[in-house]
Design a protein around this nucleic acid. Structure first.
Lengths: 342, 342
DNA sequence: TTTATTTACGGAAACGTTTTCGAAAAAAAC
DNA sequence: GTTTTTTTCGAAAACGTTTCCGTAAATAAA
């Protein structure tokens, strides 16, 4: 029944072949100062020859180092997170680390069970962008208690004292709104991710501030929180546009809401940008090829992933907790395109 | 210097608290038949109470089960792979498994080192879509030797006897080309991923077959292999269109080449679809919103990820090798849009 | 009643490393 | 020449599980 019991070469065999002790071989491979240079070389040769690959579970058990980090994100079919993963993987590889990936699908419950497992010592550290459903942070307690370093990126938990890599969400929200105003909009709707995420709040705060600064009313009816269902979002946006025909600008906090806006406008035969101008947070690679090309606030997703990973690895390698003071704020860039053009 | 030496609760402590032996507690938690029902319940209660989480490295070492699979793909910032990851993660979670993700960035060398590491026993199985650079499969030998189950999806190595989850690439290439012909194209260029990947070959074979079936010449000059550099692709496509002004149709084997085609046409002021019709393999979510909307061959990416993972887990759970006979071929769907319209 | 079998558990080995401790040999210091 | 230090290595104890045995009590078979 059991498949062939393949014997992977281990330290014992290697030691035997070399007429050395296990400990010496282990130290040689770990480049210990206690081992003579020529011995090291001899060991390395033999290891190469026998295709020796250390058992990660044995070394993980003994050394309490998993050489692995956990990446917990809402979804992967999203350019922002895809690019972030890219950045994380880059840094992990550079540090000879492995990356475990977990998707929450915006579910608080999934996030909780994932965190519970990860607190068990499977990873040396965690990078996380919280689910939109996660209102509080009690589910993260096991992590803090188990002392696993944690770095947030983009979507953070405000009440947890750790490093976070974010973008200038308030300023970006402000700029996005101001851009619409400058392009002639007088009644601007705001579509936000969810009413729980702090980045959504900040972007909205920027939006409100910009409206006030330009003497425009910040009407609550202009604000529409999105759902997880894209079609439903489209319906709601359409209803909003119908209920308030004066709306001539839309600031979407997230990509899918911009797409839904395009759909809604199409259904209502509102021309973009002539009748309604649209701007959105988005890392869509094809934004420039949309009809019309979408004006975006592009977050430095790749850099954020890299930065978050770098902070995490600094903590891991120095065996220190991650401090809130190590947080970084990167800048998003506004890329004007036709959807807000003349 | 060392951060607080947090003592995670382990079996020994749990056993002590319960006045049971370590082995009994272990068996209780693993739902062994040798343990009385009430004892099991008592143990589970206590474990819950103390927040016990088994050490994955200890159990991995002893049981030789890592509860982890490796996912090796070229890139993640690509809708096809994003969706595939989603499917894989879904099945992995259902099986209580973890997913390690590795990006090759189309590099043969990276793929080789990743494979080398994974052969060391870190994972119970591997899902892989090979890098375009990988011409041969010698770098996969360590995997076969170490008996780690391997399932290919989409991009396969032809000369390795294992299960593969692919799509009907020949038929799809045929249909795509035929679609262009039906839309009136008489000189159709083909842009392929790379000249090494077998899926590229199959798609191209389908393309050639369709041309012949419709009495069109399959001229070698109509075939352009892509590179990893998008701008360079754009330049080459532009040059191709200039050198052969009769080209009235483009069949792109991969998304980025379609985008480059859009760019090239834009630069040359060739109108799509009036002068040049474009069809492409793509899982772009926003294909319908491009200018013009892009006709695509959509692969069932999510389902492919799921299917591949299911095959892998069948092998893992039964402790059997994956057989080529378990391979599956799913169908892609042609979604006609304006880029090939009248 | 005696003997087999089943049930429910404990002791201890094993998994393959890393690391502590110790110690012989070589080199340096005296 | 003796003592100290440095260099280089080996024996063995961890790490926290799983699992192979063994075994006492309870039950069933004889």
């Amino acid at each position: 029944m059991p498949s062939s019991p393949i014997k992977r070469t281990n330290l014992k065999q290697l030691a035997h072949e070399l007429n050395l002790s296990i400990s010496t071989v282990s130290r040689a491979l770990n480049d210990s100062y206690e081992i003579a240079a020529d011995t090291k070389e001899r060991v390395r040769q033999k290891a190469q020859e026998l295709g020796y690959e250390p058992n990660p579970y044995a070394s993980g058990l003994r050394s309490r180092k998993s050489k692995t980090i956990g990446l917990v994100i809402p979804e992967v079919a999203n350019n922002f997170f895809s690019l972030a993963i890219d950045g994380v993987e880059e840094i992990a590889r550079a540090n000879d680390y492995h990356v475990l990936i977990y998707l929450t699908h915006e579910s608080h419950e999934r996030e909780a069970t994932i965190v519970q497992h990860l607190a068990g010592g499977r990873v040396d550290g965690i990078l996380m962008s919280v689910a939109s459903e996660s209102r509080d942070s009690r589910h993260l307690v096991p992590l803090l208690e188990s002392n696993v370093p944690l770095v947030f990126f983009d979507r953070v938990c405000e009440d947890i004292a750790t490093a976070r890599v974010t973008t200038d969400d308030f300023a970006s929200g402000y700029r996005a709104t101001e851009h619409l105003v400058e392009q002639g909009c007088r009644r601007i709707a705001h579509l936000l991710i969810s009413d729980t995420l702090s980045i959504g709040q900040k972007r909205m705060d920027g939006y409100r501030a910009a409206l006030r600064a330009h003497g425009l009313p910040d009407d609550d009816t202009l604000i529409l929180p999105g759902t997880l269902d894209r079609d439903q979002n489209t319906v709601r946006i359409r209803e909003l546009l119908q209920a308030d025909p004066a709306i001539d600008g839309i600031f979407a906090s997230v990509e899918t809401l911009a797409i839904s806006s395009y759909e809604a406008c199409q259904e209502l035969r509102r021309r973009v940008p002539e009748q309604v101008k649209i701007i959105s947070f988005s890392n869509l690679a094809t934004a420039a090829y949309l009809n019309p090309p979408l004006t975006t606030i592009r977050q430095p997703a790749y850099e954020m992933g890299k930065k978050a990973a770098e902070i995490l690895f600094r903590a891991i390698s120095k065996n220190r907790p991650v401090l809130p003071s190590q947080s970084a704020e990167l800048q998003s860039t506004l890329v004007p395109r036709r959807s807000t053009g003349g």
